[in-house]
């Protein structure tokens, strides 16, 4: 693609130029449309919470304040939560990408005897859901309640990610493995030395999905570890604050009870905590991005 880039504008046909212009305008529209909700959250988080009630804030705060952030950083559990969130994201992502890609490799080997069986066995898990209670009982019997590992182990294998990686591997030239095989390399070596490096774009993608999933999950924290403050996560702390409003589904009848429920954390504080919890994971993206914006030069590897 680098050579494509170097082509001068002057050599483009009128049709090409029209395409370029249209494309640039289209992309600008996309930017404007998609950046808006996020800027809106940011502006609200920096606005005075009483003033926020009046509405009409778009991408710029009306009454600038850092009070909302001060309120959030007053929560002591935030540090513990941040530590656990970072840990589970890093450990969970590395393990999951490693395991999923390994499975994907075995499934991409058309000659592997268990290929058919394992594919079906794995694919069905995407659609079989046992429900909350059996899942909970399993974790309990495995002794994983109130442990850090409950964040990592149950989610390590995701069928979805496996199939994504496999579909990428299916497109790799088989000749590479052939030649390595002839050199006497075993299957694990082929996977680790030859296949993995070629899969960087898809691994980066899956890593992003897993990392975002790990970072954003709070339900496992709530379900299994809510009684242990040392194991709290950032996302769970956020949910606790946000939940003070969203009881709507279970709202009972009768006004004096409802009065209790209308007591909410101010919207601006909620937006501030959303920013605090979201920004760290956004930073991951640019690091991974280079693997799928620039094309891999497969040709070089082949030679």
């Amino acid at each position: 693609m680098s050579r494509v880039n170097r082509r001068a504008f002057s050599r483009m046909s009128p049709g090409e130029i029209a395409f370029e212009v249209f494309n640039a305008i289209f992309m600008l529209c996309v930017v404007v449309m998609t950046v808006y909700p996020f800027l809106n959250v940011l502006a609200l988080s920096l606005n005075d919470s009483l003033d926020t009630v009046k509405g009409g804030i778009h991408i710029w705060p009306r009454q600038f304040t850092l009070e909302n952030y001060k309120t959030i950083f007053g929560y002591e559990t935030l540090i513990i939560g941040a530590r656990n969130s970072v840990l589970r994201t890093i450990i969970g992502t590395i393990l999951s990408v490693f395991c999923c890609s390994m499975i994907a490799y075995t499934l991409s080997r058309k000659d592997f005897q268990l290929r058919k069986f394992f594919s079906v066995f794995l694919a069905l898990t995407m659609y079989l859901s046992a429900g909350l209670i059996p899942g909970y009982m399993l974790i309990r019997h495995l002794g994983m309640i109130n442990t850090f590992w409950v964040y990592i182990i149950p989610g390590i294998v995701s069928a979805w990610n496996v199939f994504i990686i496999r579909s990428f591997m299916d497109n790799l030239p088989y000749a590479l493995q052939e030649s390595a095989k002839l050199d006497g390399a075993n299957d694990f070596t082929i996977y680790a030395r030859i296949i993995l490096p070629l899969c960087k774009p898809v691994l980066a993608t899956v890593a992003l999905f897993v990392a975002v999933g790990q970072w954003n999950s709070w339900f496992d924290n709530y379900l299994y570890n809510s009684s242990k403050i040392q194991l709290t996560t950032l996302q769970y702390e956020l949910q606790k604050i946000l939940q003070s409003t969203t009881v709507s589904q279970t709202a009972p009848r009768g006004t004096s009870v409802l009065e209790n429920m209308a007591r909410v954390s101010p919207q601006s504080v909620k937006m501030a905590i959303t920013i605090v919890v979201t920004v760290p994971i956004l930073v991951v993206y640019p690091f991974l991005q280079k693997y799928f914006v620039k094309g891999m030069t497969l040709g070089a590897v082949k030679a």
Partner: peptide, 25 residues
């Protein structure tokens, strides 16, 4: 709430806690 907080709503049918924020504003 935003509508009420602008002061342009003449009549509201609700319990007072439902739009307290707007009145405070």
């Amino acid at each position: 709430k935003a509508k009420i907080a602008t002061g342009r709503v003449v009549g509201v049918i609700d319990q007072d806690w439902g739009f307290q924020d707007a009145v405070n504003s």
